[in-house]
C-alpha cells in the first residue's frame, strides 16, 4: 500500500517475483528489485527478474497499491553501455515507478532519453552532503536520494534543511562500513568488482578449509577469518573479517553485525527522511517477510505515537549482533 500522508514509506527488497509478492503482502509501501544481469548491485546467481517477470510483478504490485523501483545501479562497463541503456528503457516500459541509478553518464542518458521517468539516486553514488545531492537534483532532476551510510541522524537533519528532494535511508540489513560505490576491496581480492559486476565478496570466490579444530574462511587468495569449529561463522564479507595489525588480530574494519535502526525511526522521521529502506534482495522470502512485518509494525507504532518494540528482529541479524552504524556519531 502507498504510505498514509505523513507516514514513512517502507521500501522493501525483492530478489524474486515470489519475494515481491511476499513483501507486498507483508505491508511494503514500495518494493525495489533488479534485472537478472550485471546492471544491478545484487547480481547473484538465481536472483532477480527477467523482463517478463518484471512487467508481471509490477502489474501485480500496482494492483495492490504498491510501487516498484528498479535498481540499475552498477557502473556501466565501457564499450557495453547499451546493456544499461536497455535496462532503463525496459524498466520504464514495464511500468516501473522509478529507476535507481548511480553512474553520471547513465543519469545524463536517462534524463535525456526518458524525460518522464522518475530518477532516484542510488546509495552507490555516495552523495553525502547537500552540495553533492543538489548537483544531482539540478543536473538530472533526481527526485530522491538514498543516503550513504556515513552520515549521522543529526547530519541528515542538517542535509534536509538545504536540499529540494526526498531522502531514503537504510534501516535494516547488511551494513557497508565503506562509502558505497567507492570500495574496491572485493575487486582487489577477487577480480570481481561490486561497481562493475554487481556483487561484493561473491560466493564463487569463497572457500572454506578445516585445520584440525579450526575453520578457515577465504576470499580469493586471502584468509578472511579463522574460527573454532562450532563457533558461528559469519559469511566472509571482506570488511567484516579479522585481520592482523602489529601482531594483534582484530576486526579492523567492522565487527560482524547487522544494521538495525528501528529504534532511531523517530529521529529519522523528525530529520525529514521520507522513506526507509531494508537491505537484502539476496535474502530468503521468509527473512523478507519477517523483516517487512516488523518494520510495518514499527512504522505504524510511530504513526500512532506508540513505543517501537526493541529487538524484534534479533534472530535475523548477523551473529545476533546489531548496530546503529554511522547514524550514531560514536561509531566513527
Amino acid at each position: 500500500m502507498r504510505p498514509a500522508k505523513g507516514s514513512l514509506e517502507l521500501v522493501c527488497p525483492a530478489g524474486t517475483p515470489a519475494a515481491l509478492d511476499a513483501a507486498v503482502a507483508a505491508g511494503a509501501d514500495t518494493v525495489y528489485c533488479g534485472f537478472n544481469d550485471e546492471t544491478n548491485a545484487r547480481n547473484f546467481p538465481g536472483l532477480n527478474f527477467s523482463r517478463a517477470e518484471l512487467a508481471d510483478s509490477i502489474a501485480r504490485a500496482h494492483a495492490r497499491g504498491c510501487n516498484v523501483l528498479v535498481a540499475i545501479n552498477t557502473f556501466p562497463r565501457a564499450g557495453d553501455v547499451d546493456l544499461w541503456h536497455r535496462a532503463i528503457a525496459d524498466a520504464e516500459a514495464a511500468g516501473a515507478d522509478a529507476v535507481i541509478l548511480a553512474d553520471l553518464g547513465l543519469l545524463a542518458h536517462a534524463r535525456e532519453k526518458h524525460p518522464n521517468l522518475r530518477l532516484h539516486l542510488s546509495v552507490q553514488a555516495a552523495a553525502a552532503n547537500p552540495d553533492a545531492i543538489q548537483f544531482y537534483v539540478k543536473q538530472f532532476g533526481v527526485e530522491r536520494v538514498v543516503l550513504p551510510r556515513v552520515v549521522t541522524v543529526e547530519e541528515i537533519a542538517a542535509i534536509h534543511r538545504e536540499i529540494t528532494c526526498e531522502t531514503e535511508v537504510f534501516v535494516f540489513g547488511g551494513l557497508c562500513v565503506m562509502a558505497e560505490g567507492r570500495c574496491l576491496l572485493s575487486s582487489y581480492a577477487t577480480g570481481k568488482s561490486p561497481n562493475m559486476h554487481g556483487a561484493c565478496s561473491p560466493a564463487g570466490c569463497i572457500s572454506y578449509r578445516e585445520e584440525g579444530s579450526t575453520f578457515v574462511s577465504r576470499l580469493g587468495e586471502f584468509t578472511i577469518n579463522r574460527v573454532t569449529k562450532g563457533e558461528p561463522a559469519a559469511y566472509p564479507t571482506l570488511c567484516k573479517g579479522r585481520f592482523v595489525i602489529d601482531g594483534k588480530a582484530t576486526h579492523v574494519f567492522e565487527d560482524p553485525a547487522s544494521l538495525d535502526a528501528s529504534q532511531l525511526l523517530p529521529g529519522l522521521k523528525a530529520a525529514g527522511v521520507k522513506a526507509l529502506k531494508i537491505e537484502g534482495r539476496q535474502r530468503s522470502r521468509a527473512y523478507a517477510d519477517a523483516v517487512v512485518k516488523a518494520f510495518r509494525a514499527a512504522v505504524d507504532s510511530l504513526d500512532r505515537g506508540l513505543e517501537i518494540r526493541a529487538g524484534a528482529l534479533a534472530a535475523l541479524t548477523e551473529g545476533g549482533a546489531t548496530t546503529g552504524g554511522a547514524y550514531r556519531k560514536t561509531w566513527r
Binding site: F75, P76, R77, A78, G79, V81, A102, D103, L104, G105, L106, A108, H109, D131, A132, Q134, F135, G181, R182, N195, M196
Partner: peptide, 23 residues
C-alpha cells in the same frame, strides 16, 4: 565537481569514471 562545473578542472581517481558516457 559541483563547485568546479563550468570551468576547466581535473578529476581524480576517487571519482567514478567507468565508461565513455561518464567521461
Amino acid at each position: 565537481v559541483s563547485a568546479l562545473a563550468g570551468r576547466p578542472f581535473a578529476v581524480g581517481p576517487l571519482v567514478n569514471v567507468y565508461n565513455e558516457g561518464t567521461m
